[in-house]
């Protein structure tokens, strides 16, 4: 074992290996954060469509969820990065001229964002359905519109109820960023492999990455728990129905 390796400088350039991994970690976090924003927004929208009054919208939402859930993530990465530009000429022209790392980052965040959004949509749907028809009827009975009913009654409760599954989705998202290695995004796993291949210090490099992922997972978990506690309301914590 040689833990000094992290302080040594890379063969080309003047950065040490730990700095290299740190930059990878930066890409990982940036990618996860952007994808999370996309996933929450799209997932909420799709979840609403799935439970709303419009049958056509509900059917479209089902197809969306099935599409993103039933194709392996790595294949989705290939579709975004390799296939999509081939099918769209203007996009291809832009890809050829653009900075490759920007293209990789955009492909990775779109891919992970929509992949995760399908899972969040299912959680949102399950959360809304767990509230039962009564809450919806009570809100409508007072004259709230469908949009107001979601905005002021259904969603505020749903998001409190689904905080635990959302937490694991966030942690899954962070872990899934490693698959962006397959399209060459220089995130943490990419840098870890690179370090292993150049220095043959696989064990040290992988141990560092393992530690880093565990710390992020723990931090994400704690952050979500903190939010969960801050927004907690008596009687709503996955136990909304037991109040009756």
């Amino acid at each position: 074992m040689n833990w000094q390796i992290f302080l040594e400088t890379m063969p080309e350039g003047d950065a040490a290996w730990w700095e290299m991994l740190a930059s990878g970690l930066g890409w990982t976090l940036a990618c996860a954060a952007c994808a999370w924003v996309i996933a929450l927004a799209a997932g909420t929208g799709i979840g609403i469509a799935r439970t709303g009054a419009s049958r056509a919208a509900a059917r479209a939402a089902i197809i969306y969820v099935e599409l993103f859930r039933n194709i392996p993530l790595i294949v989705q990465f290939f579709l975004w990065y390799f296939v999509l530009p081939e099918l769209c000429a203007p996009l291809k022209r832009w890809v050829i001229e653009a900075d490759p790392s920007v293209v990789q980052f955009l492909a990775a965040t779109s891919c992970l964002g929509l992949f995760t959004s399908a899972r969040i949509a299912e959680q949102v749907r399950a959360g809304i359905e767990s509230l039962g028809r009564g809450q919806r009827q009570a809100a409508r009975a007072m004259g709230l519109s469908e949009a107001q009913c979601y905005r002021h009654v259904l969603l505020p409760v749903t998001f409190r109820v689904i905080m635990p599954p959302l937490t694991s989705e966030l942690m899954n998202l962070v872990k899934n960023t490693a698959v962006a290695y397959s399209i060459g995004l220089a995130e943490l796993f990419f840098r870890t492999r690179e370090m292993g291949e150049i220095t043959f210090r696989y064990f040290e490099a992988f141990a560092a990455a393992t530690l880093a992922y565990m710390v992020i997972a723990l931090a994400a978990n704690r952050a979500m728990r903190f939010i969960e506690r801050r927004i907690a309301v008596p009687g709503v914590a996955g136990t909304a129905r037991s109040a009756h």
């Binding site: 009564g134 809450q135 009827q137 009570a138 009975a141 409190r160 008596p234 009756h244």
Partner: peptide, 10 residues
């Protein structure tokens, strides 16, 4: 309503 249906988050 039978089951009150107060909004639990408010």
């Amino acid at each position: 309503f039978q089951h009150f249906e107060l909004f639990p988050h408010l």
